[in-house]
Design a protein around this nucleic acid. Structure first.
Lengths: 153, 153
DNA sequence: ACTATATAGTTCTACATTAAACCAAATGGA
DNA sequence: TCCATTTGGTTTAATGTAGAACTATATAGT
């Protein structure tokens, strides 16, 4: 599977477009989010809802591909608002456990609610079958980049 | 074309994946770039090569979807390194014109060169036909988000 | 047991970005 | 012509992130 010049051009454009879409969608998210809820905060809350409580900060950082330092920052904000509880891990003195509070769950639900109209608007203006078909390609690209970044992940 | 609940889920996941891919690829770019060349700087240089010289700062900012302030910053760096020349627009006292210098062109070519192996590596580890088929979906998503952000664009 | 190494988390510095306020020049309508 | 509005660009403050240095605890090999 040797890559030809055309493939490289396409891949380059693909990553370029993805960068811009990411920037545009982050902005759009920010505009509809309830006051004070930032995208990284929301993503963490959503992660906890989907994958369950009692995650460690590092595992969350890896899942969303940010540094530990960035996660310390985000978790600090969420804890300050009472959206999560952070407790020491009983079995590992180095580690901590992050869990959602009722307020955090409510805040996440409110954010999802606020996101609805925007998502519906986008979905209504785009050819969704194409998006559905494209999703696996983006996912596999994510996996490849992930592994290249840290081969032992 | 009413969006059902499944479409919203898919769109949400799609944007999520795109955000992470953007972050991963920005990091990967940063690692292979020649010393001092940042991703935004490279994107601007590349934009000038592809779309031609004599662009205005605002048009570049719009093309890559960053604020005018961010562009002022990036262009300042590029000018400081001698990669671009910025001159007042003769026909519009408010405006400026940005053009590549020989050094800027060389720096862009060197960056492209440095990017090659990384792109080749990725292209070799991924199913490129899927990427090629997915590109139009990402592009149309970009257009939709673009228009929703500023309907008169 | 001991030592080297790996891992969890925090802190600090540097930097790119947004949003908003601001200035200057152009545009369009009364 | 004059005034209101728009547009190009800069600047400032606030924020999120990466990267590196650091502490503390766990793990593995000898």
């Amino acid at each position: 599977m040797t890559a030809n010049e055309n493939d490289l051009q396409t891949l380059f454009r693909f990553l370029n477009e993805i960068g811009i879409v990411a920037q545009l969608s982050a902005n759009a998210f920010g505009k509809v989010m309830p006051e004070g809820m930032t995208l990284p905060q929301f993503v963490v809350l959503n992660h906890l809802v989907r994958l369950g409580d009692s995650r460690t900060p590092v595992s969350i950082a890896q899942a969303m591909q940010v540094t530990k330092g960035a996660m310390t920052n985000t978790l600090g904000h969420l804890e300050g608002k009472g959206f999560i509880a952070i407790v020491p891990d009983a079995h590992d003195g180095r580690s901590k456990r992050v869990s959602l509070t009722a307020m955090g769950k409510a805040a996440r639900d409110a954010a999802i609610e606020a996101l609805g109209p925007e998502l519906r608007g986008i979905a209504g203006e785009i050819a969704m079958p194409g998006i559905i078909k494209a999703l696996p390609a983006v996912e596999s690209l994510r996996k490849v980049l992930d592994i290249r970044r840290d081969p032992k992940s």
